[in-house]
Design a protein around this nucleic acid. Structure first.
Lengths: 200, 200
DNA sequence: GTCTATAAATTGATAGAC
DNA sequence: GTCTATCAATTTATAGAC
């Protein structure tokens, strides 16, 4: 009875471990330079066994993307607990600054994945990374909208664009300080935004 | 006499053709997904002959980077003809907007290369893409400095970061309009910048 | 469900004829 | 200088034993 449960639990565990390690290694090494053997080794799973859980390498990439997507959900859910939309956005920016060392070393996980997946002939995964970015854009737009700002979606575009840009530059120049400086500027920018006066 | 010149001229031509096509194809397909055969075919050079001009694939990547670097030089030299630094920056932004279709399809050539080269274990090419970005940062910083603005280097960082960010988003979402909208915002931002009053 | 062995294909790079 | 043929290594994916 107990024996029939354990293997199943371990099987689900292996799948999760593979997805988790895939997310980490694909971020660090990139999609093309990462072999299935790399991921299998990190997840402590024999190479041939990988195909029992993921039929192709693309499916593993997709699983990694889902991991990042889940992390994003977790973060926005936590931010939604804050009553003030402006505080939510500020806390988001502070989270980016906190991650500056990782960003300087490997870039934004979703952003670099988007760049890499775009260069693939397949065409099946091209849009997937865009979906994650779009969700972040929509959540940000909601916050600007709640603040009563005009053009909330343009503000969201500016914010996320700034994040992707500073991550890329921090990564290209290997300088985490870029994240800190541009992050501080974004915080100041947020403070300067005012809703149009509705009383007139 | 004339015969001895022709082959030499054609040899230099082949090298240039290889570099030109490498720059184009590496931008479109990415470094890892582009084979030497791809570049050789596009440059109309037999595969085995490529190694006479470039000893390794990395050297071809480096040559492609030099091409992009030369294009950047050409652009800034042209912009330097304009008397007003602010006009130089505005014309630069307008050039970005003009390239929106290419950016939406393949991203910024230097930016995507920087992302890809960072993911390589080699370590020899990691810094090379950063060098090109840094030159653009320095040129921009010079313009802000000429305008008498405080923190010219931070302004440059904001500008180039915005460019990289909007290119990445336009590419990830396959939407050239993002370049147009964010470009317009940058133009407005440039107009709003004022030098600190020196008379007081 | 798990794992080993190996197939099948691709690709960076070289040898050597012309 | 130019090109063909090919090597050597890597990597995705499968077949089949346990």
């Amino acid at each position: 009875m107990t024996d029939s449960v354990k293997p199943r639990a371990r099987a689900a565990d292996k799948r999760r471990r593979l997805a988790t390690e895939a997310a980490r290694i694909l971020h660090e090494q990139g999609v093309e330079r990462t072999t299935l053997a790399d991921i299998a080794r990190a997840a402590d799973v024999p190479v041939g066994n990988v195909y029992y859980y993921f039929k192709t390498k693309d499916e593993l990439v997709l699983a990694a993307l889902s991991e990042h997507s889940a992390h994003l959900d977790e973060l926005t859910n936590r931010l939604d607990q804050l009553p003030d939309p402006r505080d939510r956005l500020k806390t988001l920016i502070e989270a980016w600054i906190d991650q500056r060392e990782v960003a300087a070393r490997y870039g934004c996980p979703t952003g670099t994945l988007a760049v890499e997946l775009d260069k693939r002939a397949d065409g099946t995964l091209d849009a997937e990374a865009g979906t994650v970015v779009r969700r972040l854009l929509e959540w940000s737009g909601d916050q600007f909208r709640a603040l009563g700002l005009s053009d909330p979606d343009d503000h969201a575009l500016t914010l996320i664009s700034a994040y992707q840009g500073m991550s890329l530059l921090a990564n290209a120049l290997r300088d985490p300080d870029i994240m800190a400086r541009q992050g501080a500027r974004l915080l100041h920018w947020l403070d300067s935004l005012e809703a149009p006066d509705q009383t007139t």
